[in-house]
Amino acid sequence: MRYYAKAGVGGQKNMRALALGLIFSAVAVPSLAQTVLKSEPLILSPYEVAFVQDPSCPIGKVLKVTGAIRGLHRRKVCVSLASEQASLVTATP
């Protein structure tokens, strides 16, 4: 016969802290890195954003391409990548 020790309240607190830590890290990791493409993608969903290394933009800036709904043109703007990572306001449609 085996005897198991009761899990105390401290164990539940540690498990909650671990779960919250995993959730926050899963949300934070994608926002830390942005992929810069070498060419503009052919298919881009509405309001999806892609960063493209484009020679028409000045040094230190990349082309930010935002997908549009059918019948409208994509929005293209040269931006510095550091400011885009810090801003969440521009990500909302």
Score class of each variant (00 low, 15 high):
2 R>P: 03
5 A>C: 01
5 A>H: 13
7 A>F: 12
7 A>H: 07
7 A>Y: 13
8 G>I: 05
9 V>T: 14
10 G>K: 07
11 G>C: 06
11 G>F: 05
15 M>I: 05
15 M>G: 05
16 R>Y: 13
16 R>E: 12
16 R>M: 15
18 L>M: 14
19 A>Q: 09
19 A>R: 14
19 A>E: 12
19 A>V: 14
20 L>R: 10
21 G>L: 06
21 G>A: 03
21 G>D: 07
22 L>P: 06
23 I>F: 04
27 V>F: 01
28 A>D: 04
31 S>Y: 11
31 S>P: 04
34 Q>L: 15
35 T>H: 12
35 T>A: 07
35 T>E: 14
36 V>E: 10
38 K>G: 09
40 E>T: 06
43 I>V: 05
46 P>D: 10
47 Y>S: 03
47 Y>L: 03
49 V>S: 00
52 V>W: 08
54 D>R: 07
54 D>K: 02
55 P>K: 05
55 P>Y: 01
55 P>T: 03
57 C>L: 06
60 G>W: 00
66 T>N: 03
67 G>V: 05
67 G>Q: 08
68 A>L: 01
69 I>C: 07
74 R>P: 04
74 R>V: 11
76 K>L: 08
77 V>H: 08
80 S>I: 09
81 L>I: 02
82 A>C: 06
82 A>Y: 01
83 S>H: 10
83 S>N: 12
84 E>M: 13
86 A>Q: 05
86 A>Y: 05
90 T>P: 07
